[in-house]
Design a binder for these strands. Structure first.
Lengths: 219, 219
DNA sequence: TGTACATCAGTGAACGCGCGTTCACTGATGTAC
DNA sequence: TGTACATCAGTGAACGCGCGTTCACTGATGTAC
């Protein structure tokens, strides 16, 4: 049995009233340590390996310890998913900042950021959108970050509408759902290994065909 | 323990050299009976309940019996997925036939058929695209039906191109991938409960925004 | 036509596994006095 | 400043479960002679 060493809680992510120094018995910031462990497992071993026992093992605590901080397995899955949405938003933001000021290019960058995140973190992507949580509505903060993600797409579309590049009469929310569907679908197909073609190539193509052609006035 | 009764093999789906009459010991057409059982489980109890043991139980045979016909669990999962693609194609075909002769309308009907199938058979959809099979390339017939499905989209787009309704200079395969991505993404988001809006409404909307706007000439 | 036999689709029991979760407990902490 | 004590985050063992898969076997089939 490999020995898992308890890890220093990360500064800056410490919970409000957590004690300063870790010790042998009381962990210091076990919730964060458990989340870190879960993220590490998802990244290195995939979705199937993400069990509560494995998380506890990697965090260096007994298998019962997580129950002090998470009601059940679903709850830690939701926490992982939530973290995933934050990473996804960061990836999209980064992708946008790396491109210029043209609204349409920025919208497209959002989409490419989305696909890039999905293909770079396939297991995390699966947890975010998989059936792990029977009922997503039981996790309001998860719903919140998911809708924040969609809001980024909406904002990019509003910018395009203001610049007269996209049909203004269509609600930005509707167009955003359309855009989200296409990048999400491409991501899912790539992540599940349904497509043979290289991710970067098809991401360029789909965003070109769709985002650039999105709602362009007919006739 | 509820008693599962062995079932008459369906006429017309019987394998070439299967014996005519079922009997107590030799089943008659166990492979088909197992597939039927698996489909029933997926439909009524969902993806999680689809275990080899449950399949054997419902087919009325011992838990070891399936191994005469399927190498392992992955193999029966692949068979279920393959059946799903055939049903999906049937749904798309039906949706197309119910609409007129206008190529763009037909293309859109393909998309709506896709989303309708997904939301009507969410568990089946999950098996088709889920991570159940570690390596899809190990199941060539599954790959085949999946690419047949895509071929239906390609064909619909070629018709649109011939009618001058969609950019002819873009390869139909590329446009088809774009279209597939959008309906697949919408389906996935609906199936996983990420969206609140009614499926039919958003299916109409996304296919309108995308398919009708797909590659319309700029300028 | 009758029979020995090879074939192989089934059986039933078992292996080994790891999971989520619960429970009575113990040890460290910080606070009230 | 010192101490009793309530609090609660941890422990370690156990429960009960169902899974995928294997194995030696048995019973029905159809064919060769």
């Amino acid at each position: 049995v490999p020995q898992a060493e308890p890890r220093e809680p990360q500064a800056g992510r410490r919970r409000p009233h957590a004690p300063r120094r870790p010790n042998r018995y009381h962990h210091g910031d076990l919730p964060q340590a458990l989340l870190d462990a879960a993220l590490r497992i998802v990244k290195t071993q995939g979705t199937e390996a993400l069990t509560l026992r494995a998380v506890a093992r990697l965090a260096g605590v007994s298998q019962a310890a997580p129950y002090r901080h998470f009601a059940n397995k679903e709850a830690i899955l939701a926490a992982v998913a939530e973290d995933g949405f934050r990473s996804l938003m960061a990836a999209m933001r980064e992708s946008v900042q790396a491109c210029g000021d043209i609204p349409l290019a920025r919208l497209r960058a959002v989409g490419i950021g989305y696909v890039t995140f999905a293909t770079s973190h396939p297991s995390h992507f699966r947890v975010m959108f998989g059936r792990g949580m029977a009922d997503r509505s039981a996790f309001p903060t998860l719903r919140q970050v998911a809708s924040d993600t969609l809001a980024m797409v909406v904002a990019a579309i509003v910018d395009c509408q203001r610049a007269g590049l996209v049909r203004p009469e269509e609600p930005a929310e509707d167009l955003a759902l359309t855009a989200w569907s296409s990048v999400h679908g491409l991501s899912a197909l790539l992540v599940e290994g349904v497509l043979d073609r290289p991710a970067a190539e098809v991401a360029e193509m789909v965003t070109r065909d769709l985002f650039l052609g999105l709602g362009v006035r007919q006739g």
